Computed example of a mutant assay.
Amino acid sequence: MSRKVIVTCALTGAGDTTGKSGNVPVTPDQIAADAIAAARAGASVVHIHVRDVATGQGSRDVALYREVVRQIKASDVDPVINLTAGMGGDLFIDPSNPTVQLPGTDLVSGLERLAHVEELRPEICTIDCGSLNFGEGSQLYVSTPDMLREGAARIRELGVKPEMEVFDTGNLWFANVMVAEGLLAPPPLYQICMGIPYGAPANPGLLQAMVNMLPDGAQWTSFAIGRNQMPWVAQSVALGGHVRVGLEDNLYLSKGVLATNVQLTERAITIVESMGSSVATPDEAREILNLGQGN
């Protein structure tokens, strides 16, 4: 029997991509429509950020999440819903005076980042497993061990499965510590995020090394951004993992050809199936990840 691979479609993200492609969904209607279409195309999981309708920038507005989730649940498909809980960790500092926060900073407590999770109780939410320099300039993403332990404990109380976002080997080290401390119900779910400056580079050897660090029984996905998105589908399947694609991570189907979330989902499914595996249905994904069982 072929192995079941969970395919996640990450619909929009929070990056400054809306001016680069008209296919990036912004409004709740657009995000929900893309989620529904990706699920119809075969995605097992839809990963959801929301955006401010006026500016197109990432948002933590609970009402926006509420409307996206409402529309998906009212549709004819039932994908696993995975809500980001990473918003609220952005810190921009003045390099000449690091105590000064610059415009663009959105820095709140770990528990405040869970406001929409508290209300909507998705099956999965993300938890970003460490702080890092986020690209060029003076932007930092802040996620401390104290924040992470507190957040993981609350997520488990809510019965939600945390997807641990791992941007570098130190993030993976701490994710493993949380598993060892019993903060997460089995099986732990890891998302290995590669190619994001300045986290883990998109290097196949590094992916193999990180997979070797995972605890027994872990479930994991990996992705790489930009042109490495589809090669990483193959890398993940070959190493026994699940896969993620979508406009959050890559805007192009091929050089110069802008993609849609459906097209990226369909291409990922083709790769998965061509490698002798099959795509998990949403219910099969729920069984693999033990969702709804006191996560």
Rank of each mutant, 00 (worst) to 15 (best):
M1K: 09
R3D: 08
V7G: 04
S21C: 13
A32E: 00
I36E: 01
A37Q: 07
V45I: 14
H49C: 04
V50T: 07
D52P: 11
V53N: 03
G56L: 05
S59E: 11
D61F: 03
Y65G: 02
E67W: 01
V80H: 06
I81A: 02
T84L: 00
G89R: 06
P95M: 07
S96K: 15
V100A: 02
Q101T: 02
P103A: 00
S109N: 15
R113W: 13
T126I: 03
I127V: 15
D128Q: 08
G137R: 08
S138P: 05
P145G: 10
G151M: 09
E165K: 03
F174D: 02
V177H: 00
E181G: 12
L183A: 11
A185F: 03
P187V: 04
P187S: 08
G195D: 06
P197A: 15
A200F: 04
P201A: 09
A202N: 05
G205F: 13
G205Y: 05
M213C: 15
M213A: 10
P215H: 14
A218Q: 12
Q219D: 12
T221E: 14
S222W: 13
F223N: 13
F223C: 15
A224N: 11
I225V: 15
G226C: 12
G226D: 14
G226Y: 06
R227P: 03
R227W: 05
N228M: 10
M230Q: 07
M230L: 13
G240T: 14
G241P: 13
V243L: 12
E248K: 13
D249A: 12
Y252E: 00
L253N: 02
K255I: 09
V257R: 15
L258V: 08
Q263A: 04
L264P: 01
T265R: 00
R267L: 13
I271H: 10
V272L: 10
M275A: 07
R286Q: 08
I288D: 08
G294M: 09
